[in-house]
Design a protein around this nucleic acid. Structure first.
Lengths: 202, 202
DNA sequence: TCCGCCATTGTGGATATCCACAGGCGTGGC
DNA sequence: GCCACGCCTGTGGATATCCACAATGGCGGA
């Protein structure tokens, strides 16, 4: 069960109503916004779901909104609606990370299918982000010295070598190592390497 | 210095000549093919460079060629040329991995810029593939038992636990472990984990 | 001034690993 | 029949790690 909804952003009320109705008939919850500005005013990075953007709106365009969202670290998938065939624009936008482009007119089923896929991707991104945030928090809890030791542990160095490298006693390295494993919630250097390898951190 | 060239695939001789001339004026080497079929007949997975495909050709189309190449594990970037604005098609193809779409008419500089970027990506992909192939070869050299032991080493298990798990002596695990490290060219479990984490294997 | 935390160093001892050497059994290929 | 290889087990011993406990000094905040 997804906790995301579809954000409908279009300055044309008739379009918003039609889209909301269409999605409702597929049991998909949505929220309508009459401008990019009003959406941005309420936007926060923890928002879930996906966006349906008309590419051309008065005021801030769909593209400008998309750029803003990228800048703010938004991970929600974005589906563009366009009535004008502009291949270079579509290609450029998709390569920048837009989820999809839909050219009007399109069938109800087609839109619903894309939306379902987009919400699925949002769910997946959310799980990944949650996992990464947990790992990142653990990393933030390490002291500077612990980070220096951890870097060398991950480089495959023995405690004796780390001690020589940092000009401290091997016993000190042993203490740091134990603290690092405790804070990162792992039991060995291998587990630590695997944990960080599976994460995509900032 | 890239060892890749630009493969020009178009059934229109005038287009091929014009493109070749344009690229030559930018000191970019190219090879022309008058059909998708003729290119495929000569294609092999070790080919380097990038492709410029006209999307509509008599016989096998550019799209059909692209699908064939994906099936054959081709990693060379593909730039599509099209005279017809078809947003859904362009979006679908780019999401499948096409490097770019260029709509006619386009400027010389624009094409050259895309080609240079595509050749750069090919270079990067090649380095990655070479590294992965080396790692894969080392993995292939492991015996079945060694693979079983390695899996558990990477899972963070101690030798004593692996021994109990596989119903063999701990000394046996020690021997396998040493052989694994020798074949994979690492000195510790951490190095092994890092090696495999950095690789994208089949 | 006191307290908590970080960084450091140490003792003692158990467990895990690495290295070298040695040998047996089963299987498949020549 | 012989040989090579994989898998297995073992001895001996050195090195690396983990765990528990203990202590000191510096620093920053209350």
């Amino acid at each position: 069960m997804s906790t995301g909804i579809v954000h409908l952003i279009d300055d044309d009320e008739a379009i918003r109503d039609a889209l909301a109705w269409l999605l409702r008939s597929h049991r998909i919850e949505s929220r309508a916004w009459d401008s990019a500005e009003s959406f941005l005013a309420d936007y926060h990075v923890d928002m879930r779901g996906c966006l349906i953007l008309d590419i051309r709106m008065s005021g801030m365009t769909g593209l400008e909104l998309f750029e803003q969202l990228l800048d703010r670290g938004c991970a929600m998938p974005v589906i563009f609606l366009t009535g004008h065939a502009d291949v270079p624009l579509a290609v450029r936008t998709v390569k920048k990370g837009a989820f999809d482009f839909l050219e009007k007119p399109f069938s109800d089923g087609e839109l619903a299918e894309r939306v379902v896929a987009a919400l699925g991707l949002d769910e997946q991104n959310h799980r990944l982000a949650t996992s990464n945030a947990s790992i990142d928090a653990r990393l933030q809890s390490l002291t500077m010295r612990e980070k220096e030791v951890m870097k060398r542990i991950l480089g495959g160095q023995y405690n004796k070598v780390i001690a020589a490298d940092l000009q401290i006693a091997m016993r000190t390295v042993e203490v740091h190592r134990a603290r690092i494993f405790e804070k990162m919630n792992v039991r060995s250097a291998v587990e630590l390497a695997q944990l960080l390898a599976g994460a995509q951190l900032d």
